[in-house]
Design a binder for these strands. Structure first.
Lengths: 186, 186, 186, 186
DNA sequence: AATGAATGAGTATTCATTCAT
DNA sequence: CATGAATGAATACTCATTCAT
């Protein structure tokens, strides 16, 4: 939620509103998908539509801020020594189930989407690339796979999950990974 | 395309227009997805909006006509003695690449979607179930898989393909199946 | 219902269709009101829309044919020696309940409506005028009333009845006349 | 009328526009009836359609704002000690002549219409019930009548008035009441 | 003369984006 | 700098009327 109206004029209030907007967007995009009305985000944040547009001049910039969060969490997780590729995939799946907009990061291609989105995508790819190398050296993942294969797997699950009604998402995600696990195994 | 405007009032033109509408819907749904504006379909068909609504009173009936084609082709293919599960998956992939709306058949669940759509889904499922049985008896597909796993695989590919820009669809579909093939193998 | 398609080309078939259209219009106008879709009338009659327009080039001509029936019945009733004003009002009320379009005859004014409608209105007025004279001479109706007062009473009931949901029409008509009867009494 | 287009974005303009919309609705509903196109209201108010929907999310809320005025006036009038049932009927008749939508309040039945409309209807009924009691005690109105009879009378007049062309409304209303007055008299 | 399909203007509603305060 | 109201383009759907067959 944004801070109250009167308290909202100062410098730090702007940051508060920004945070409120991102938090609201996480929820709203997660529930209604990436194409949810932006007015819904503003309302959920308790912030005027104008402010939303000041902070995020278009839908993509708002999405970026949301995904930024996701990716940063992922990078933090990846930074821990005990984290494996499997941990990361689990986390991504959780993010996928939580936000059906997540698929739009994963599937962003430089050619098509806003170039800013691909930056986020690239960070996911980098994180997965590292973990994949480790998992392959440890013999847990088939050697012949490349990072793009893992991205593909993640993308397939995310895309399917985004299509099913929210009540079915977790089950769909679990079943999908159960199937894909076989494809990754050595 | 529909026949020219003035020459178009008679009874024989009805079938022409119906065909033109389905053809236009194949294209428009294929390009823009299942939720494309129906007016775009009418325009592409060169037909008034009213005519679209005469032939197809709602979006689902139009979609059914489109999907009906797909599924009938699939059933015909399945009817031939030499057809295998692999052939069917190839054909489904082609349909998926051609129409990003195809995913909506695959993922239609009785609970959520129009019951008429699930009928089509069920026909796809039936076709796959048969072919899966044969493939398992022949030892080409892992025994532990059930029809729903195959639907899941098909759904994942379709969902992902629908998300990427059209130029990337074929490559995405091929890569996805390359990966999934490992998951189906015994 | 119109005669079957093949049998329908001759001279008398035209008359059949005309009758079917009027009968259908009685029902459809009665149920949905005067502004019901004309296509609904054609469909109920089992007749093409084109034929409807051939017989009745506009809504008013169709309405006239319907009302014509009503008025003719009324005139027949009025022609019987034992018929009183009260009988006529009862019949008009029945027609009103049966057809919420009836109000449009009663309230038609030369200035406003199609002149053809006022012809029908005038026939109703003539019938009532005669009966009113008799009733006044018999001392059953107040002397100070003129025909226009009776038309007014009929119009009020018809207008109100046309406004209420069909289930309430009879009760509304009865209650209205119970009240108005006092106004007509000497 | 709303304030000019460019000068119109601020907060104070909201109230202006709301007023303009209600005023426009009074006119448009009055002229064309309750089912007039809402776009006509927006246009008459000089306001975008979106603004109309912001202020009044559906037809009923707009109607309520219009009728609210009517009923509040009525209640104010009823509050004065010297006001009689006859005064109230006169006022209602004026409102009826001014707005052919008024009949829709009077005839709203709980079963049929939006419950919010019936609230307004109930307020009219309450006002009339009080005044009827007084008038009956004073011997000016027949004892055997109940409030619903008065509502019926009001409804009949309103329904008829709504049917006739606007130039005839006043005369029709006067003549109708002249007739009904006899029915109410002891 | 009948048919029924085609048309397109009209109405309700939603939502991204702008801008006066 | 925030606010939230205004805007209008876009979309779904209906129906009176025309016209090829």
């Amino acid at each position: 939620m944004a801070v109250g109206r009167r308290e909202n004029r100062g410098r730090s209030a702007a940051a508060d509103n920004r945070r409120a907007l991102v938090a609201a967007a996480v929820e709203v995009f997660g529930e209604q998908g990436y194409h949810a009305p932006l007015s819904a985000v503003a309302k959920r944040a308790g912030v005027g539509q104008g402010s939303l547009y000041r902070h995020f001049p278009d839908r993509v910039s708002l999405a970026l801020a949301v995904f930024e969060d996701n990716v940063t969490q992922l990078e933090e997780l990846a930074g821990r020594p005990e984290t494996t590729l499997e941990h990361l995939l689990t986390r991504i799946t959780e993010q996928t189930v939580a936000s059906i907009a997540f698929v739009d990061i994963i599937t962003a291609r430089a050619a098509a989407a806003d170039p800013r989105l691909t930056t986020v995508t690239d960070r996911v790819r980098a994180v997965l690339a590292d973990a994949l190398g480790e998992a392959q050296r440890a013999g847990r993942i088939r050697r012949s796979l490349c990072t793009e294969d893992v991205m593909l797997a993640v993308g397939m699950v995310a895309a399917l999950v985004a299509k099913v009604p929210s009540a079915d998402r977790r089950a769909t995600a679990d079943a999908s990974w159960a199937l894909l696990r076989e494809a990754l195994r050595p």
